[in-house]
Each structure stands twice: as C-alpha cells, then as structure tokens.
C-alpha cells in the first residue's frame, strides 16, 4: 500500500476542486485580461484579437461617459448600501425584542431576498408607474403629492428610485446577519449593564455594537461588491435612462461588449471596475482588522 505524507494527501484531495476553479474562474479571467489588450470583436474574437497594448485602458480612462457611469455607480452604492445597513440593523434590533408576531415578521423578512432581482425590478417599475402606479396613488391619496409624478422619467430622481427598489430587496440580508449576531449576546451582559445604570443608548454602544460590528462589516463588504456590480435592476427598470442618469459601470461594460460588440475594450472597462472593487474591499478589510485590534 502506498502511503502519502499529510501534505501530499491534502494536495491530492484538493486537486479536483482546484481543477474546477481554474477551469471556471481562472481561464475566463486570464482570457479577459488578454482580450483587454486587444481589439477583439464579439462576432469572432479568435480572429480579431489584434494586440493594441494599453490603448483600450487609455481610451477608457479618457471616456467621459465611462467616468460619468462610475460616478453614478458610486452614488448608487453609497445611497443603497448605507440605507441597507442602517435599516437592516434597526430591523434586526426590533426583531430581537420579544413581542407577539415576531416569528411571522422574521419569516416575512426572507420574502424580498427570495424574490429574483428581475421580478423585483418589474414589480417596482409597476409601483413607480407614472399613470397607474401604486406609489402615485398612495402619495396623492394621503395628500403628500398634488399630482402624479414621473418617478423614473426624472433624471434627478431616477437613480434614487432604483436605489429604493434595491434597498427594499437587500436590507433583509443585513438584518438577518445582524439578528444572528444579536442572538449570541448573552442576556447577562445586558442585565449587568442595566444594573450598572447604563441607559439604552449606552448599552447599545458598549455591549451590542462591539458584538455586531464584525458581522455587519461582512454584510457591508458583501453588499458593496454586489451594489457596485448592479446591472439587472437597471436593465429592467430604466436601461440607463433618462439621459444616461442611471447608467452604471456594469451597464456601460455591457453596452461596450455586447451592444457595440467590442469585447476587447469591454474587457478593459470590466477590469477597471474589478480594480475599483478590489480597492474598496481591501480598504474595508483593513478597517475591520483595525477595528479588531482596538477592541
């Protein structure tokens, strides 16, 4: 019988998984990096991959439409992620209290998450409808709005409206993660703090907050990555309109690569987006680490 060392066994067992990962992640990634330096065309990438060096990147960074779309994306990410974190944590705190109907509410929390993004986008498109939309009906009937409003047709509003649809769908993720963390806090700690005379606010900052900050940071990182890639909700709700006010980087990459068929330069745009995401994640991880060292 052949005997392997521990390390060899580990590598042997890892091989199948590694092969799959290299196949489905590594190969496309390397190919994308390669294409980003070529003038490849979508119709026949293999015959059009003329090497152009950094030309695609230089062009991308000088493209005002692309820079606009980065700005739109940054705006979208900051609005939706911060709202998702705040609402998510507040909802988790609420659902951590004992009250009647808590189980039902906790179950309902899953609903938006379970909805496919495209369905969610269609639903909110209907809600925002300028003629028959529920939002207009609600706001006019309670007297908050004098006349029906075109929510997705106004360039100053559209990105906010899309962000709201995204917030509604994704705050439950933050809430669920936070809720799980909240349940690990020992009741004794809270009781001790109360006996020592700490008020609600003090209890939150000294006992609850340190316990949830790490899991919430994870949610923050996850949501930021996801929000930065936002595409489907935009594609369904506005297609980047009105007047490009909701055009995000992913939509720009999609247009470049698939509508204009320039996958070479599309790849360079995509990699710039990846680089920005990576920088954001690194910053977060660094912050979390710093947080861990101080507490």
């Amino acid at each position: 019988m052949v005997r392997f060392t521990k390390a060899t066994t580990a590598w042997l067992l890892l091989t199948p998984m590694m092969t799959i990962i290299i196949g489905v992640v590594g190969y496309p990634l390397i190919k994308t990096v390669y294409y980003s330096f070529t003038a490849a065309h979508l119709a026949s990438p293999a015959t059009t991959d003329r090497w152009v060096g950094f030309k695609n990147y230089i062009k991308a960074l000088g493209n005002s439409k692309f820079l606009d779309s980065i700005e739109n994306t940054a705006y979208f990410v900051s609005v939706s992620v911060s709202a998702e974190i705040i609402i998510g944590v507040l909802v988790a705190l609420l659902l951590n209290q004992a009250f009647k109907g808590r189980t039902l509410l906790r179950a309902l929390l899953i609903l938006p998450l379970a909805l496919p993004t495209v369905v969610n986008a269609m639903m909110w498109r209907l809600i925002y409808g300028p003629d028959f939309g529920a939002l207009n009906a609600l706001l006019t009937q309670v007297g908050l709005l004098a006349e029906y409003q075109s929510w997705l047709g106004d360039p100053d509003l559209a990105l906010w409206m899309v962000a709201i649809a995204d917030i509604w769908k994704n705050f439950p993720l933050v809430a669920l993660i936070t809720l799980a963390a909240l349940q690990t806090i020992s009741k004794d700690l809270i009781e001790a703090a109360t006996l020592d005379g700490a008020n609600t606010w003090q209890r939150f900052w000294t006992v609850v907050f340190p316990a949830i900050v790490a899991p919430v940071s994870v949610a923050l990182v996850l949501r930021t990555i996801e929000a930065f890639k936002v595409f489907d909700i935009i594609y369904v709700m506005t297609r980047g309109g009105p007047a490009n006010s909701t055009k995000t980087v992913s939509f720009h990459v999609y247009q470049e690569a698939f509508a204009y068929m320039r996958i070479g330069s599309g790849a360079s745009y995509a990699l710039i987006v990846v680089l920005i995401s990576a920088l954001l994640i690194a910053t977060y991880l660094w912050l979390i680490k710093k947080q861990g060292n101080t507490t």
């Binding site: 106004d154 360039p155 309109g241 009105p242 007047a243 490009n244 247009q255 509508a259 204009y260």
Partner: peptide
C-alpha cells in the same frame, strides 16, 4: 456602427427633452 450612433442620439434627444 449604427447601434452606437443611435445610443448617442437617444441620449442627446433625451437631454433636450428633459431641458438639460
């Protein structure tokens, strides 16, 4: 390259229609 020309024109028309 019609697709790209059309996209540029769509945005231009919308900018004018929105008064920007």
């Amino acid at each position: 390259s019609y697709q790209e020309m059309s996209s540029a024109l769509q945005v231009a028309i919308q900018e004018a229609l929105l008064g920007s």
